[in-house]
Computed example of a mutant assay.
Amino acid sequence: MTSSSIAEQVSTFNEGFTAQIGPELSAVFDAEQQALTAAGRPDDAVGVGDQLVDATLLTPEGAEVSLATVVGEGPAVLVFYRGAWCPYCNLTLKTYQEQLLPTLRDRGVGLVAISPQTPEGSELATSNGSLDFPVLSDPGNVLSRALGIVTEPTAEARAAHTQLGFDVADSNADSTGDIPFPTVLVVDGDGRVVFADVHVDYTTRTEVDEVVAALDLLP
């Protein structure tokens, strides 16, 4: 079982990734992260006290399901991630599976991961991390857009992606490059947000202990 923090795992991954892709592509992604950080959190991004809207999502099998049905009557942790193509997302979801899910189950709190990718992508994310919690698709980023957390890679980053052999649009259900900022929400049984952590730099993520601490905010 992984015991190190997400930040520690990201640091180790980045060392190998930078060596693999070389300085030119690394500089492109560094510039993108710096630009995202400089722009900051969107003014209309979801925040504490907001009411979560319902949305129609897709299961990995392609069946429609409402967010309200998945969350049920209990509190829940919602994780918005970019897609199975994102190594930082895979690393984070696997860590949540191993380190966070047992605590949430003990406390009767659900865990749901949501991305704009196709149902096939959700299935891939599930298998990548051996995930044992719902992983759903938000086609067209309808839910993410309502929460004010939608962005897209820069043109330079997408060109770098192409050099690495993939394009975000090929993974998304609506064939666009739109993706959510990596975000973790903790919502109570009434769908009210008690914790919202939006990461504009996609190489950083909400640590497990931060989510666990946020559970104490639940009524």
Rank of each mutant, 00 (worst) to 15 (best):
I6P: 01
I6L: 14
A7C: 07
E8I: 05
E8K: 06
E8D: 13
T12M: 06
T12V: 13
F13D: 01
F13T: 02
N14G: 02
F17D: 02
A19H: 09
E24S: 05
E24N: 03
L25M: 00
S26W: 03
D30P: 05
D30W: 08
A31K: 13
E32K: 10
E32V: 13
Q33C: 14
A35L: 08
A38G: 06
R41D: 07
P42Y: 00
P42F: 10
D44T: 11
G47Y: 02
G47C: 11
V48G: 12
V48S: 11
G49H: 11
T56V: 15
L57Q: 12
T59E: 14
A63V: 09
A63L: 05
E64N: 13
E64L: 06
S66K: 15
L67Q: 12
V70I: 13
G72D: 12
E73I: 06
E73N: 12
G74M: 09
V77R: 10
V77H: 14
V77Q: 12
L78S: 12
V79Y: 07
F80L: 12
F80R: 14
Y81T: 07
R82S: 13
R82H: 12
G83W: 08
W85H: 07
W85Q: 01
C86Q: 04
P87V: 09
Y88H: 13
C89K: 06
C89H: 06
N90K: 06
L91T: 04
L91S: 07
L91M: 10
T95V: 13
Y96T: 14
Y96P: 00
Q97T: 14
Q97F: 08
E98A: 15
L100E: 06
T103D: 14
R105E: 15
D106M: 11
D106C: 02
G108D: 06
G110L: 07
A113V: 02
A113W: 03
I114Y: 08
S115K: 03
P116S: 10
Q117Y: 08
P119D: 14
L124C: 02
A125S: 15
A125F: 06
T126S: 11
S127P: 04
L136I: 12
G140V: 11
N141G: 04
V142W: 02
V142S: 07
L143C: 04
G148R: 09
I149W: 06
V150A: 01
T151H: 00
E152L: 15
T154S: 14
T154V: 01
R158Y: 00
A159T: 04
A159Q: 04
A160T: 00
H161V: 00
H161T: 00
Q163H: 03
L164F: 01
V168P: 00
V168Q: 00
A169E: 08
D170F: 03
S171F: 12
N172F: 03
T176E: 00
T176Y: 06
G177N: 09
T183N: 11
T183R: 05
L185E: 06
V187Q: 05
V187G: 00
V187E: 01
G191P: 05
R192W: 04
A196V: 08
D197K: 14
H199F: 07
T204V: 09
T206N: 04
E207D: 07
D209H: 01
D209Q: 03
E210W: 07
A214F: 01
D216N: 10
L217R: 15
P219Y: 13
P219T: 11
